[in-house]
């Protein structure tokens, strides 16, 4: 799970889920605790789906 998807692609990551920034990948301190939790829960959920998904090339999973 990374914000800098091009970096993840360059080093060869195969299953990628975008996060929202470098200093706070999974929770923007400017937003409410509830929103941050929802975002984190959702994106980790996407990561779990990615782990279950068969792929044949580097794939960025939509969030």
């Amino acid at each position: 799970m990374a914000n800098l998807i091009p970096v993840a692609e360059t080093v060869g990551a195969n299953r990628m889920v975008p996060t929202i920034s470098i200093p706070y990948p999974l929770g923007d301190p400017e937003s409410s605790e509830d929103e941050q939790w929802k975002l984190r829960y959702h994106r980790v959920g996407v990561a779990l789906e990615a782990l279950e998904t068969a792929i044949d090339e580097q794939t960025v999973f939509e969030v």
Binding site: L26, G27, W37, R40, R43
Partner: peptide, 13 residues
């Protein structure tokens, strides 16, 4: 990250 490390390591989720 210091204020809430789960933003980086999402253990809670």
């Amino acid at each position: 990250a210091d204020a809430n490390p789960d933003r980086v390591v999402p253990l809670d989720a």
